[in-house]
Design a protein around this nucleic acid. Structure first.
Lengths: 201, 201
DNA sequence: ACAAAAAATGAACTATATTCATATTTCGTG
DNA sequence: CACGAAATATGAATATAGTTCATTTTTTGT
């Protein structure tokens, strides 16, 4: 479908991509807060004002970047879900896939961190990005709900709550100061959540 | 010891308290980002410049407020620890005490949220508040380590990691959009962590 | 070739954290 | 009490960054 585009639409996409790429580069280098819109647009070699033809605010571009990442991970998980694997296996695979993705795309980890910083944005304020998390949480929620239906996951706790727990764990791992990799971090925690930390008597 | 203070020192403490109180009030009402230093100092009925005689930056005052909160919770947990209760009981009590504290001091919940927003601040930048979390995490870390030594907690996972998990859970609960109270939220999750979510076959 | 529509642009506007030179208050001392 | 030094208070000035907008440049259909 890209063939039938006029020069205008092509250039528009091109500019959009230039801005997104520049944003990734700058956010990765300096972090979200330390990157100015001017930094992004200079790196993209476009006028500052142009930014606002494509994004409503500096925060919106962050949200869009994260949403894109979540979608890619969700896509990777989809085939496993299609194969009807048990929930605990899916959850464990989720770690590996997310971790691998973050490893292959090192740039997103700083983004993920920035997203963590901004995940608790106050409800009231107008231009709220409506956060990217739903994509992530929604995915885990479905896995967990189906797991409960099959009796693989305990049913005395709402899946949303468990999903929220997984979500917080991924965010914490992204900003963890512990001396282990993101992957080890989330894998261990996933195991803990699956089996608990208390020694059974 | 407060008796032996000159007027100067007393006024200093008084100003400091006025600023802290005003900050709590304003942060609670409008959130951290939406509160300006001017807002705080107007509420405190002091000149704007005075702020910087007491705090290095707007972020520093947030950190100090959180640290104070953490210390109060830690204090409340101390007697339980002294009574040598088992780790799982301490962890469960931690929920209740933290939740009760947040309930009795509603103002801190918005602060806790702001702290969550700012917990992942980039390492490099100069005026980093060195975050309050260590207090919280350190407390849980000790509880868990002792639990492991007594064989109450599984020993194949470093206590720092579990502590990090608890910490992330509290933060997530503070900003949760789920329709349950903070207390229910962290209590359920603590139970999940203690016993796991996987149904044993 | 031309006019209308789309897109780009950066100067100007706004908001706010922070600095700093100055003014005010407090305190020890003669 | 008086006076100078030290501490504290202050808000105007500065610096920075997000956002808007009137204008210019580019593209497209005719």
């Amino acid at each position: 479908m890209e063939e039938k585009m006029g020069r205008r639409e092509r250039k528009k996409l091109q500019s959009r991509k230039a801005i997104l790429d520049a944003a990734v580069e700058q956010f990765s280098q300096k972090g979200f807060k330390e990157t100015s819109v001017a930094d992004i647009m200079n790196a993209a070699d476009l006028g500052i004002g142009t930014f606002y033809n494509y994004f409503q605010s500096k925060e919106e571009i962050l949200v869009q970047l994260i949403q894109q990442m979540v979608m890619e991970v969700a896509e990777a998980l989809r085939e496993l879900k299609a194969a009807n694997r048990p929930a605990d296996e899916l959850l464990a695979a989720g770690c590996r896939i997310t971790a691998r993705f973050l490893d292959e795309n090192r740039y997103v980890l700083p983004l993920f961190i920035s997203a963590a910083e901004h995940s608790g944005l106050p409800e009231g304020s107008d231009k709220q990005p409506k956060v990217a998390s739903p994509g992530f949480k929604g995915l885990y929620e479905r896995i967990l709900r189906e797991g409960q239906e099959r009796g693989e996951i305990r049913q005395d706790v709402p899946p949303e709550l468990i999903a929220e727990m997984f979500h917080s764990i991924y965010q914490a791992a992204a900003i963890s100061k512990l001396n282990i990799s993101f992957q080890e971090n989330v894998e261990m925690k996933t195991r803990l959540i699956l089996d608990g930390i208390r020694v059974k008597k």
